[in-house]
Design a binder for these strands. Structure first.
Lengths: 391, 391
DNA sequence: CTGTTAGCGCCTTCAG
DNA sequence: CTGAAGGCGCTAACAG
C-alpha cells in the first residue's frame, strides 16, 4: 500500500530541495535541464502526484469546473446535453480540469448551489447550459466576478442576442438558424416548394432562432412562409398532431423542417399513418408510397415523397432513419473550455482575433465595454445536416 | 465583493476561539448550547463556508465521489446511465458529497484515470457503472483499498454473480430477470402462449439475466422456450430483422419480450410492416389490425394483437407508446451513495441486517470473508413494468 | 467546556 | 539556478 508520496520524498530521491521540485512542476524553465530530468525521473519512479488540496490552498485554484446535470427531460432531446457533458469532461481533462456536477431544480436552487460551491469546493469556473429569457444566473455570477461560460447565447427579451443591454459574457452556441436554413435549402434543391416548419411557441430564443432560418431561406427562394408553420409544445404526440394539420391544410406541405427530433418523430408518424390510410386532403393526396400528389399545383413537386428533417441528431433519429441537423457538441464543449482557460491564462495581448471559432465566423462582436475586465468573447458553431432515409 | 470569510472571522464575531467554531461544525455536542447558537448565528450572518481544501488537508477527505460519464452509446439506451448519474448527483449532495466526472475510453485508460485522480483530487470513493465479465477495475481498486461501489453485479465467468471466487464488494443492481419475468407473466395473463424473447448473444451478464427471467417464467407455465428466442446485437435494425424471423417462424410468436428498448422498437417496426403488408407466415397470419391469427394452434391466443415489451423505459418508449420494464434508477443511485457512506461512517455494530435494500430482498449473502475488512453488502432492486399501448 | 499548539503539502517571497 | 522561511484554513491533540 503506497503511502502518500509528497514533494519532499521526490526532493530527497532526486537530491534537491523541495522548492526545486516545485519549480520543475510550475516553472520548468527556471531549472537546469539536467536537474529537471533527474527530478522528473524521481517523480516518475515514485509515482508522485501534486495534491490538489494543498496546491489549492496556496494558489486558490481548484482546477474544478462546475456544471449542472439536468434531469431527464420529457422528450428525446435529453441526450444532447449528455453528449455535451461528455465532451466537456473530455476537453476539461485535456486542459487539466475536472468537472464537478450538481443538480438543481430551478433557478433559485441553482443559485443557492453556486453559493454553496463557491464557499466549499471553490470551482474555478461554471459552465451554464440551457440559457433562457431573463436568465438570472449570469448576472449573479458576474456580480461576484466568478468566471463562467454559457453554452447558449444570452437571449434578450426580444429573442435577439444581447438585445437588452446585457454587458455580455463569454458564450458558445450553435447557429440553429443556419441549421434549419441548410435543411430548408436541401429540400428546395430536391424540388420541394411547400416546405413547412414545426416549432415551438414564440418566445423561446432557441426555437425562434431555428424558425428564422427556415423562414429566411424560404423567403429568399421567393416563397411566402405564411401559413406553412405550426407551433406546439415539444413532444411526439404534439408533433404528430401539428404535422397532420400541416399535411391536410389548404396549402398542404410536401416537406417539413422541425425544431426537434421529438417533433420530427411525431411528424413521421403522421406521414406514415396518413399514407397508410390513404387519406385525402383538400388539395393533395398521399399515395401508398408516402408520395404526396398535390392536385393542380404549379411546380415540380408532384409525386415527391413527403420529407421530414429533425433537429439534434439524437440516437432516435439514427434509429428510425430520420434526417436531422447535428450540433457539433464536442466542439461546443471544447469551445467552452477554451474560453475558460483563456480567462485564466490570458494569451499574449495583441495576438490573433479573439472572436469567432472553428466552424464559423464569430458573432457581431459588439462594442460593449466590459466593466468586469473580462473579454467578451464568443464562439458560434455551424451545425451540419445528416441525411437519412427520411429526406 | 465579499472577500473570503474564514473560521477566524467567525470566531472573532462570536467572541470565541477558532477551535470552538470548528467544534460547533464537527462535534456540536461538545459545545454549550448558548455558545453554539452564537457561533451559528455568526456563521449565518457572515456567510461562512468551510473551505474544502483546507479541511481536506487536515482530514484527508475530499467529499468527492468520482464516476465515469460514458460516451453516447449507439442505441437508445444511453439515457439510462444519464438518469442514474442525475440520481447519483442528487443523492450525493444530500449526503454532503459532490460528483467528480471523468471520461475514459477503455479499461486501461479508466484505470490510469483512477491513478491520476487518487493522486490529485483524491476522491473519497468511486462509483463504477457498466460492469462486465472479467472487469479489471474492481480488483485494481480493491488492491489499493480504495472505497467503491458498482452499479451492476460482478458478473463471473459463468454469468452468475460471484461465481468465480470474487471476494466481493458492495454493489447495487436491478433484478433484470424479475423484470422480464413480470413482462412475460403479464403476457401470459393476457392469453399469450408463444411469447418470444429478443436478446443479446450469450455471454453478457445483463443479457443472460434478462433472458433467464423470461425462460424461467415460460417454463413455469409449462411452455418450452426453445426456439422462441433470438440473439442479436443491440440496435433497432437488428431488432427488426430478428423479430421478423420470430414472427415468421414455424412456431410464430404472438408476443415479444425484449432485452432493450432499441430491440423492442425494431420489433415494433417489424410488427407494423408485416401487418401493413398483410404477410403470411408458415402457420400464422397477421391481420390488418396487427392481430396474428395462428392457424390450427391450440390455446386461446387466436386473434390476439401482437404485443411487444421493451426494457429500460427510455424516453423513446414513452414517445412511441412502448411498454417497457423500468429500472428504479434514482433508488439505485441512492443505494450506491448509501453503501458508500456506510463505509465511511460505519453504523453501530449489531444493528439491523446489512444486506438487502428497498424494493427487494438482498442477494444470497455468501459466506466469503472480506479480507479488506469492508462489509460485503449489496442491494438488489426490483424493476417495474410500465404498460402502454404496445401491450 | 474553551483556548493553545502544531502541522497537513504546497508555493511564493527572499537570500545565497 | 538553488536553499531557507512563512503561511494558506482547518482540525486533532492536548492543556487550562
Amino acid at each position: 500500500m503506497a503511502t502518500k508520496v509528497t514533494i519532499t520524498d521526490v526532493a530527497r530521491r532526486a537530491g534537491v530541495s523541495r522548492q526545486t521540485v516545485s519549480n520543475v512542476l510550475n516553472s520548468p524553465e527556471l531549472v537546469r535541464e539536467e536537474t529537471r530530468d533527474r527530478v522528473r525521473e524521481a517523480i516518475g519512479t515514485l509515482g508522485y502526484r501534486a495534491s490538489q488540496a494543498a496546491r489549492q490552498m496556496r494558489t486558490g485554484r481548484s482546477r474544478l469546473i462546475a456544471t449542472r446535470i439536468e434531469p431527464d427531460r420529457d422528450g428525446i432531446n435529453g441526450s444532447v446535453l449528455d453528449r455535451f457533458l461528455h465532451g466537456l469532461t473530455a476537453s476539461a481533462a485535456r486542459a487539466g480540469y475536472r468537472i464537478l456536477l450538481y443538480a438543481a431544480g430551478d433557478e433559485r436552487s441553482e443559485i443557492d448551489t453556486f453559493d454553496d460551491l463557491v464557499g466549499s469546493h471553490e470551482p474555478d469556473a461554471f459552465v451554464l447550459t440551457s440559457t433562457y429569457h431573463g436568465d438570472g444566473r449570469p448576472a449573479w455570477l458576474r456580480e461576484r466576478r466568478l468566471p463562467f461560460v454559457t453554452f447558449g447565447r444570452p437571449w434578450g427579451d426580444t429573442g435577439e442576442p444581447d438585445a437588452s443591454g446585457d454587458p455580455g459574457h463569454p458564450w458558445v452556441d450553435v447557429d440553429g438558424a443556419a441549421g434549419t436554413a441548410a435543411a430548408t435549402r436541401h429540400l428546395l434543391d430536391a424540388g420541394h416548394r411547400r416546405i413547412g416548419f414545426l416549432g415551438w411557441p414564440p418566445g423561446s430564443g432557441v426555437g425562434d432562432d431555428r424558425r428564422s432560418g427556415w423562414a429566411r431561406t424560404l423567403t429568399g427562394a421567393g416563397i411566402d412562409p405564411a401559413g406553412l408553420d405550426q407551433a406546439t409544445d415539444d413532444g411526439v404526440a404534439d408533433g404528430e398532431k401539428a404535422a397532420r394539420d400541416l399535411l391536410r391544410a389548404e396549402r398542404p406541405i410536401t416537406a417539413l423542417v422541425c425544431a426537434s427530433d421529438s417533433l420530427a418523430l411525431g411528424a413521421l408518424h403522421a406521414v406514415r399513418s396518413l399514407t397508410a390510410s390513404g387519406q385525402l386532403t383538400a388539395s393533395g393526396r398521399l399515395t401508398a408510397e408516402g408520395r404526396l400528389t398535390v392536385g393542380g399545383q404549379a411546380g415540380g413537386e408532384e409525386g415527391l415523397p413527403v420529407r421530414v428533417i429533425g433537429f439534434d441528431d439524437t440516437p432516435v433519429a439514427k434509429a428510425v432513419g430520420l434526417s436531422s441537423v447535428s450540433q457539433p457538441l464536442a466542439e461546443a464543449a471544447a469551445g467552452c473550455v477554451g474560453l475558460l482557460t483563456r480567462l485564466f491564462d490570458p494569451p499574449s495581448p495583441g495576438g490573433p482575433g479573439e472572436s469567432g471559432g472553428p466552424g464559423g465566423p464569430g458573432g457581431p462582436g459588439g462594442p460593449f465595454a466590459s466593466e468586469a475586465g473580462g473579454p467578451r468573447t464568443h464562439v458560434l458553431l455551424q451545425p451540419s445536416l445528416v441525411l437519412r432515409q427520411s429526406s
